[in-house]
Design a protein around this nucleic acid. Sequence first.
RNA 1: GUGAGUGUAGCUCAACCUGGUAAGAGCACCUGACUGUGGCUCAGGAUGUUGCGGGUUCAAUUCCCGUCACUCACCCCA
Length: 417
Amino acid sequence: MILSNPKGTQDFLPPNSEYKHYVESEFRKVVACYGFREIVTPTFEHTELFLRSTGLTTDIVTKQMYTFTDKGNRSLTLRPEGTPGVIRAILQNNLKLPARFFYIGPMFRYEKPQKGRFREFYQLGIEAVGEAGPAIDIEVIELGVKFFKAIKIENIITILNSVGCQVCRPKFRINLGQFLDDVKEKICDECKIRAERNPLRIFDCKESVCQNIYQEAPKITDYLCYECQTHFQAILNELIERKIPFELNKMLVRGLDYYTRTAFEFVSGAKELGAQDSLGGGGRYDNLVEDFGGPKTPAIGFALGLERILLAIEPPTISTKLVYVIPLDAETQKKGKELINLLRSAEVPAMLNNPEKNLRAGLGIADNLGCEYVIIIGANEMKKNVYTVKNLSQRTQQEVPQDKIVEFFKTKSLDIY
RNA sequence: GUGAGUGUAGCUCAACCUGGUAAGAGCACCUGACUGUGGCUCAGGAUGUUGCGGGUUCAAUUCCCGUCACUCACCCCA
């Protein structure tokens, strides 16, 4: 019992931990190209922050938050998502706008775990705060697509919709409410609850009966105000022009309350993902900063689920730089110690064979460690003033002059993720 | 929160349906053949409170109940 991790958490063991590092470093490269810089915010915040932003009616807030009272009697919550903390930090520190930030870190939601869904999970996210025009919407979507391409996830579909704004959404909601009143006898029980609590979510229903009914329902896109309509149309035009494939889905809504206008989701066809096929999602949230008491500030962002990405990628090849040094006898032991010190000070990772293990055993250990190279030092080498360098995977070996050994390994670029 | 499935060696699983006479296999592990060349081969070795608790029975890994854990799905989302 003591030796088990809490439900919904997981250990990232090698090589999985290295795959994680690979995904994160590719993400860093891509976002850097678009001018996003890293922001690191606390993993817990005042509970109120999430109540005010994520939304009082959302599942996340009503039943999934890890909320606790600390010894100073403050109500704190492990962050269930990244955006509120980022916006808080921007306002609190009075940062200059526009600003572009990215973050990578664990989020926490009390859910029942299943494939691609955990209680502690990592998100890779970006937030562009203070830019209103459609240009940034396009950059953000393009960035997402580029990232998936960088990590070689090919079968990604970008699903796109506009959820309107404070001007047009109320009109839509009234009409949708009327529609739901008319059909409430025919829809499923779940939908009846949704219709009361959060009508926009009815479109998520998977019952075909309901889906058929909702074909006739009012769509937000038919109610967009002139500004929202223009904004949305500009995005569609530009995406087509840039040949970024997308799929319009008038049913797409977002689970968080603060979204406005552009809403999108990156969906994968990879069957490894099970039911959780959404690798990430995001959208515009033009009112959130104001809701926090800041100036009226447009913003857009997205978040990607790291664990789901790991399910979808082809694992990269991980090779280790570690060089395994095997002195053959008592006389060469000292030489071996000097050699690993020399290599280490040149930033070449090195490890010495245990004197109790013979050459055969040492090679086996090096192989298990994933070492590409082994250095063998024995009487013959000492005589000729060389080291025998053996490449384990290619099963080749060569003699390298002792004074050239550091240089030899410095020219090898075996990156470890 | 709801539903279904699964818990046997470090890992993957068999035996369970049809209860029965030392609980097995493969992989991994350890030792040796093998004191200057690893992934092969050969010989040998160690390993289990059959998740936990209770019940039925002469007898339970096997059947029943409970419980916990894991998995998948619903829900929701990244």
